[in-house]
Design a protein around this nucleic acid. Structure first.
Length: 430
RNA sequence: GGAGGGGUUCCCGAGUGGCCAAAGGGAUCAGACUGUAAAUCUGACGCGCGAGCUUCGGUGGUUCGAAUCCACCCCCCUCCA
């Protein structure tokens, strides 16, 4: 444990703001400290946006500190308004409770529960669930100045922007989260909270409350918002959010996401999302800059992050599919290979000659290859649909039987359909 | 409770009786170029192979014709009480 950790975090660009900057290095050097980061159950899985704080918790643990992963069973019932453009829909307590459990399992994979600085998962519903309103208002609410709260940048647009407002419920979120920090200080001697840069207001609120309730000095640190060089939102693709849950985003799709990282982002992402040292990453970058053609950074990034999130088995599956599809030689695949690809998470569907839809557009839409038939039509018109490597022309749209003629199948049952450069779908004849 | 301003296709945002499936931008998809990049150019972008069908907060109405006009309702914002 040492402020060397802070140095490393800084080198990685992982420090956005620190509350208590002068004292924090010495504080961390002074012994194992307990820190926490909260994850609200707003869905049944976290997405890669939560990866930076999750991995940062782990970095602290590797440096000898004790991480608490807080699952927001209580705060998830309220909704964090920070920098959100609009009021959010409340979910039922049952739903949130279910999600809380899923998130609890998920965050557990990123920290170590063994050893002297074993991690713990805590749920803020445990200490807020039974607080009565009057106590809360008298003991906690009194410490908060509305005048200060409305000054917070995180809610400003909701207060000032024409067309949107904020409910008392969401406005109170900050108080709840501040309460968490002070309770964790009391219960676990937790003295540092980390979170995304949007959490600054909530974190400083917790620091103030801890001082007012217990006279304790605690620290806060925010991590940068992950951005992309082209300005589009990080973590989204056409098929939607990249989730950590393999049932929502397969390890293959997950791997592909990272593999497709832009050159302008890849070394920064290596620093954010992997445990490779900054020196190693710098070496990769300089090697890439001297190489002609495709850089190696993306491949390393994809490998590292997929292994972190989905384990070695997930990574193996992802690279197996990637290798098979993008090497160009699908005819070299055995029947077993195809079965394995299905199990590994290559999107696939079963078809029968008897129940063949009348058009390819319909077939591909139903299989979930694309969102609408228009996209198939467009792709067909440009020769971008290939079945087992053979281009399908637009005129064949009305004739899927010919396209999926058993005679043309691989191993008598497999059709590997490619749409565009990157979308693959396996059709299996029954 | 009163006065005023709003709710348009994924997002932002034009559109005030027909030329509107609805400008423009963004996002997204496909093609060319490449490295399964970026930038650029091209095409698509409510649904449908198609004929056609369904949209502009909701429900009714006026009209040959409504996102546009009217009535009522729902929701949001601002100010006043």
């Amino acid at each position: 444990m040492s402020s060397a950790l802070l140095e490393d975090l800084r080198d990685r660009g992982l420090i956005f703001q620190i509350a208590g900057e002068e004292q924090l290095p010495d504080w961390l050097d002074g012994g194992p400290r307990t820190l926490y980061c909260g994850f609200d159950p707003t869905a049944d899985s976290l997405h890669i946006g939560s990866l930076v704080p999750l991995l940062t918790l782990r970095r602290f643990q590797l440096a000898g500190h004790k991480p608490l992963a807080l699952v927001g069973g209580a705060t998830g019932l309220i909704g964090d308004p920070s920098f959100k453009a609009a009021e959010r829909q409340l979910n039922t307590p049952q739903v949130v409770a279910g999600w809380t459990e899923k998130i609890r399992e998920q965050v557990s994979r990123f920290v170590d529960f063994e050893g002297a600085n074993a991690a713990e998962v805590v749920n803020n519903l445990d200490w807020t669930g039974n607080v009565d309103v009057l106590s809360f208002l008298r003991d906690i609410g009194k410490h908060f100045s509305i005048n200060a709260m409305v000054q917070k940048e995180s809610v400003k647009q909701r207060l000032e922007r024409e067309g949107e407002g904020i409910s008392f419920t969401e406005f109170t979120y900050m108080i709840l989260q501040s309460f968490d920090f002070s309770e964790l200080y009391q219960r676990y001697d937790c003295t540092l909270q980390i979170g995304g840069s949007d959490q600054w207001g909530n974190i400083t609120g917790g620091i103030d409350l801890t001082r007012r309730r217990f006279g304790g000095q605690v620290f806060g640190m925010t991590l940068p918002l992950v951005t992309k060089a082209d300005g589009t939102k990080f973590g989204k693709t056409e098929s939607g959010t990249i989730w950590l849950d393999p049932d929502r985003t397969s390890p293959y799709a997950f791997y592909q996401f990272w593999l497709n990282t832009a050159d302008a982002d890849v070394y920064r992402f290596l620093r954010y999302f992997t445990f490779l040292s900054v020196e190693e990453i710098a070496a990769i970058e300089s090697a890439d800059s001297e190489r002609q053609g495709r850089p190696e950074g993306q491949g390393i990034l994809a490998e590292q992050v997929t292994a972190l999130v989905h384990g070695d088995a997930g990574l193996t599956a992802a690279t197996r599919i990637t290798g098979a599809l993008f090497s160009g030689e699908m005819t070299a695949l055995s029947a077993d290979d195809f079965e394995q690809l299905r199990l590994d998470g290559l999107p696939s569907s079963e078809i029968t000659a008897a129940a063949m839809p009348p058009t390819l557009t319909q077939l591909l839409t139903e299989a979930g290859v694309v969102a609408s038939g228009k996209q198939v039509k467009d792709a067909l018109g440009r020769g971008a649909v290939l079945i087992n490597g053979v281009s399908v022309d637009a005129g064949q749209n009305n004739d899927p039987r010919t396209c999926f003629n058993p005679v043309a199948s691989l191993h008598n049952r497999y059709f590997l359909l490619r749409l565009g450069k990157k979308k693959y779908h396996l059709f299996v004849l029954k």
